[in-house]
Design a protein around this nucleic acid. Structure first.
Lengths: 214, 214
DNA sequence: GGCACACTGTGATGGATATCACACGGCGCG
DNA sequence: CGCGCCGTGTGATATCCATCACAGTGTGCC
């Protein structure tokens, strides 16, 4: 989902920034917590997600370095609107709101970069909301698989889903683990995807057809 | 949901901007359409909403002057992610993306204002998504009523919902007109709200209790 | 002031999906 | 290299809600 920050930009505020590490599984911050820093993810992978009081989870996104998150708290002092959890060991830099306007003075393009990031994320979130409101679980699970497999195809040349359990896919699709399982089985039966052990190989063409068709 | 633009800001780019009027009911732009302008709403009321292929509707928001919308297309050239429809007669100014960086040079605070707006809207959209994923129709309808009534209370001193049909409330809550009707009737029976003709008076305290309680 | 039309209230029904329950499979750690 | 545990597959059941159907109601327009 990211990022327009160039190395030059990073240099610009190298001394405003603070280095941190988190082990796999750690919470970087929690929903409803206050905090005025944004984070630049330098290495590793994080999950941005929401938890309901009764233990359900909805994943907003997975981010891979280089990326940034937590920008919303730079401009207002509202509580965090999601949890961010380290999926692997993580290295990152934090930038406090106090330093932001200084950073923008030094490099106004940074502001445009933030605007671009927020825009992309808002679009993405609106699309998610649209899916929740208009489409059934099958459609949503297919869309998640298409997104993940497409990203994999673009970065590694293979349209494969791995490192995500059915539970993870379900939280991305906003449905239950069981429902996601059933849908994946059924797609495998129809040869839209092929499951090899705990890995899913996606037929991008067919999957896209299915998503458009109905 | 808005806005940090001061009259001074408006002066700054008075000559980059173009004046337009739309009658009640007009589409200002459509989802999926391309377009690189943002709009400053000077007078009137618009609805930002999504339409599904099979005729369902999900309202993202209603905006009242002064407000702005369509900023996302300033920084990328993705299609519009929602429809914007004039609910009353509307007057607005459009600002093209080409002029944006110039405007930001003239007034860097404008960038911060955009970031703040986008942040607020992203928070709001995430909260909507959370509601859709975790809560039932009753909860969502109550939240819509609480939001509208609270806004009314703050601007006019009376916690009243008017000018919105049950259908409108349903599209804001992401449910059907019938379900919204049933929920409102039931809340009226329990004296959480009182319906006077086509107007709903809300007991803010009780409604908030109900929303927190379960 | 009345007539039409949009809005509202409410029953009946079916369908999607959450949830509970449990068996099976494979992966990783000791 | 085997045992345990997490992940997966799938049935049965219950619930929420969309949808269809239609009667009653208010409002604005002529």
């Amino acid at each position: 989902m990211f990022s327009d920050l160039s190395p030059a930009d990073l240099d610009t505020f190298a001394d405003m920034v603070q280095y941190r590490r988190y082990p796999r599984g750690a919470f970087i911050f929690n929903q409803h917590e206050t905090g005025s820093a944004m984070y630049l993810l330098a290495a590793g992978r994080v999950k941005v997600s929401l938890a309901s009081p009764d233990g359900k989870e909805l994943a907003l996104n997975y981010l891979e370095a280089p990326a940034h998150f937590g920008e919303m708290s730079l401009v207002d002092s509202e509580p965090r609107s999601a949890d961010v959890i380290a999926v692997t060991d993580v290295e990152l830099f934090s930038l406090d709101a106090r330093d932001l306007s200084a950073a923008i003075q030094l490099n106004p393009k940074l502001a445009l970069s933030l605007i671009a990031t927020l825009s992309r994320r808002l679009r993405h979130t609106i699309a998610r909301l649209e899916d929740m409101a208009f489409h059934d679980a099958t459609h949503r699970v297919m869309r998640v698989m298409l997104n993940v497999a497409t990203a994999s195809y673009e970065s590694r040349g293979v349209p494969v889903i791995q490192g995500l359990t059915h539970y993870d896919i379900a939280t991305l699709a906003g449905t239950s683990r069981e429902t996601a399982s059933r849908i994946i089985s059924s797609l495998a039966r129809e040869e839209v995807v092929a499951t090899k052990g705990r890995k899913i190989v996606v037929d991008l063409i067919r999957l896209r057809e299915r998503l458009e068709g109905k």
